[in-house]
Simulated assay, not measured.
Amino acid sequence: MEINILGGGPEELLPDLSEFQQNGNLWVGVDRGVYTLLSKGITPFMAFGDFDSVTADELKEIEKHVHDLKKFKAEKDETDMELALNWALRQRPEKIRLFGATGGRLDHFLANVQLLLKPVLRNIELNIEIIDKKNHISIKSPGSYEMKIRNDRKYVSFIPMSPFVKGLTLEGFKYPLKDHSIPMGSTLCVSNELISDYGTFSFSEGILMVIRSQD
């Protein structure tokens, strides 16, 4: 099972959601993202939010179509996206995708990026990523990974999310590395590119953010 969560980010940044409509996938709406899903012909399995970003008529439409609706007060300790993600993690899916998590307010964006750390910090083996029209963002724990070239995501950046990422090795990239230590705050590994059909990256310590982007 895979879970797709749609937040309330700008619609113009959303990819084509039909590409992620595989059988067995569950859709979860967050605040205005619930109404966005309904407008695209997708009925979410669950919905979370204080719904302060929808009109009264839009909320009536949401309540009409979504059976499992979790409404919260605006004053709370977690964002609506975190509440939805916590529920998704409890379902133990194979993958979680976050949409509508970029654009708009920078504090919301940075908070959503930090949510990607939850599985790694809890030692949960789970593929979780943020996807918008131009970017894929994921978090990796130490190990070795293979990456396939994508013409629509030409640029690959590796950003430390811990004080150091140690033993970073990049093979099949325009700018290779061998057993390198990267401190947090370094931009050494921003805007790399694959030069063959496949490349590999590996590291021995730390937490690494991987971003695949297009201009």
Rank of each mutant, 00 (worst) to 15 (best):
M209Y: 00
E19A: 15
K148A: 07
S186M: 05
I3R: 05
N25V: 12
E19N: 15
I128A: 09
G199P: 09
G206R: 04
I137H: 01
F48C: 02
M161W: 10
V34T: 14
K76Q: 10
L115T: 04
Q114A: 05
P176W: 10
K70V: 00
E82I: 03
R92D: 02
I131Y: 00
K71M: 12
V66E: 08
H67L: 14
Y145V: 03
K118L: 14
P10W: 02
G104T: 06
E61F: 08
L106E: 09
I207L: 12
G143Y: 08
G172A: 01
V113E: 05
H108R: 06
L194S: 00
K178T: 13
T169H: 09
D16G: 11
R90I: 10
N127G: 10
V165L: 07
D68C: 15
G103C: 06
V66D: 11
V165T: 02
V210G: 07
S157W: 05
L110A: 12
D152W: 13
L115A: 12
V120G: 11
F51N: 08
I128D: 00
L106R: 08
E75A: 02
V210E: 08
E11N: 13
I128S: 05
N23S: 14
V120R: 13
K140F: 14
S138N: 02
L89S: 08
L59K: 02
N151Y: 05
K40P: 01
Y155G: 01
V34D: 03
N123C: 03
F45A: 15
L26T: 09
H180D: 14
V54P: 00
E63I: 06
I128T: 02
N86V: 14
L98Q: 09
